[in-house]
């Protein structure tokens, strides 16, 4: 409720916005002068070998962004891949992995967790199909939704190869990961990265050469999900098994 009113007021006057920010005890969203769109280009690195499937990221995301229950901006999948044939893995994601995973054992399989989130694609199929410009790629490399402008036609949900979008059942508009834009624009990391106990997820600013994460990209074999989709995904996976889809 707070968010809706907030949006409304924001549309009315900047003064109202400033007041609300003050009342909520938040320093006003970094003004354009401080946060320069042109200086950043965001992505993420996910290290499969470090993920322990604790579900912290899923819970934190839900708390940070008030994600409606039953829908996920990020989720974790548990893969059980038979040694042969590899193309028939058993995959589970009970409640998106929010409460962790049961230790189901499948014979002769390798097992691992795969955290998923919006890939903030450079050539987003979802942005391409939006009929009105309610979802868009920002100059700093994010794919965002203007919830006051979305028609709720759901074409973008169909176009996303990764299943990252859902319809907010209360607002009847599309919703998805913002890569915690409200946090990263203030110099914080995302809620999922903040709470990941093993550092399996790392926010990366691809335009900032001083970001230590660049070293990881330079020295490791990384992959993106469904590379044949040619979406220019900016979520890079380390130690990703080919069976993951």
């Amino acid at each position: 409720m707070e968010v809706t009113r907030r949006h409304l007021l924001l549309l009315l006057t900047p003064a109202a916005a400033a007041f609300l920010d003050h009342r909520n005890g938040v320093s006003a969203a970094a003004p354009e002068s401080k946060y320069k769109l042109a200086d950043h280009y965001w992505g993420m690195i996910v290290d499969i070998a470090k993920c322990i499937g604790c579900g912290n990221c899923v819970r934190a995301c839900s708390q940070e962004n008030a994600v409606p229950s039953g829908y996920f901006r990020t989720w974790v999948e548990r893969y059980s891949v038979p040694d042969y044939p590899e193309e028939h893995p058993i995959v589970e994601s009970p409640n998106g992995g929010m409460e962790g995973f049961p230790n189901t054992e499948h014979k002769n399989t390798k097992n691992f967790f795969v955290p998923k989130l919006c890939n903030h694609c450079e050539h987003s199929p979802c942005v391409q199909v939006c009929p009105v410009g309610a979802t868009f790629e920002t100059p700093d490399g994010l794919v965002l939704v203007d919830k006051t402008y979305c028609l709720g036609c759901r074409y973008c949900v169909q176009a996303c190869p990764y299943g990252c979008r859902y319809i907010d059942p209360h607002k009847e508009v599309v919703d998805k990961c913002t890569l915690c834009y409200h946090r990263i624009s203030q110099g914080l990391t995302t809620a999922c990265c903040e709470t990941c106990p093993t550092g399996a997820r790392l926010l990366v600013d691809l335009k900032n050469p001083k970001d230590p994460v660049h070293e990881i990209l330079r020295t490791n074999a990384v992959q993106v999900l469904k590379p044949h989709m040619a979406t220019g995904s900016k979520v890079y996976y380390k130690s990703l098994d080919q069976s993951v889809r």
Partner: peptide, 28 residues
Amino acid sequence: PLQLHLGHPERSYEMFTTPHKTSAMAMF
């Protein structure tokens, strides 16, 4: 049927005012 299906039918005029030229649907 399209109008009835939209989450926000009252915003459908946006298809005419700001059609996104890369979207197949925008031309409808």
